[in-house]
Design a protein around this nucleic acid. Structure first.
Lengths: 116, 116
DNA sequence: GCGGATCAATACGGCTCCGTAACGGTTTTG
DNA sequence: CAAAACCGTTACGGAGCCGTATTGATCCGC
């Protein structure tokens, strides 16, 4: 089932969500970091640095640094691939799942208040 | 008319939109900048630096710097208030309206593809 | 008018992220 | 096995944004 809404509803939703994020002032991820985090949690594993870099069309150091930052916040975890020890497998964490759950709730709550 | 969707739909929408923004690699605004831009275009004018700072719960220099950056991209314009020359009135631009129109289209297009 | 209040902008030091390039560790190839 | 390929990380210089404090301009109360 697809979701339909108007142009102004779409912008209003973005506005309300980003405003809530800014006003809250808690965890504040860049657009790139959020894209990486959501990819890790919504696309099928396994996720490697190289794979994420290709999927997001950015360089590998960008992924490494984003994982450093989000790992510091316990939003993701890293682990060497035992099968090929050159690879790093990026894994989800309880903290990360919790963060995205709240983010999803925020979107839903704001979507519900949209006027046509 | 409100818009209802599921938790995973909400996150999928965020994922697709942020991914498109990152992959595209064009104009990339911080969360704060986007919140400011959307406020300028969706809330009733007039918009002052102080007013925006209060609405977003950030300090005034944050607004000034964001307006500097977005003004450089022609997404917003500044003008002294003739009635009280201490104030600066923030105005919309054609370029800014165009950017938000594309952004809204991106959200709508992605929302349409959501699966239940 | 003059002093204080109010507005936006700027100065400053610090932090984060960027892109390119180089690096060690691991695996594959010939 | 040695050489080449591959993977993730780190080094480096540069750019952008942060918060606090200050400045310069303008308005208001007495």
């Amino acid at each position: 089932m697809s979701v339909e809404f108007s142009h102004s509803q779409a912008l209003r939703l973005l506005h309300d969500v980003s405003l809530a994020q800014v006003r809250e002032g808690g965890v504040d991820l860049s657009n790139r970091q959020l894209a990486i985090l959501l990819t890790i949690y919504m696309d099928l594993p396994p996720h490697t640095v190289r794979g994420l870099a290709a999927k997001l069309n950015v360089t590998k150091p960008v992924i490494t640094r984003a994982l450093d930052a989000m790992g510091e916040m316990d939003l993701v975890a890293r682990r060497r691939d035992p099968a090929d020890r050159r690879n790093v497998i990026v894994q989800r964490t309880v903290q990360g799942a919790l963060y995205l759950e709240k983010l999803g709730d925020l979107v839903i709550a704001n979507a519900r208040t949209l006027q046509a």
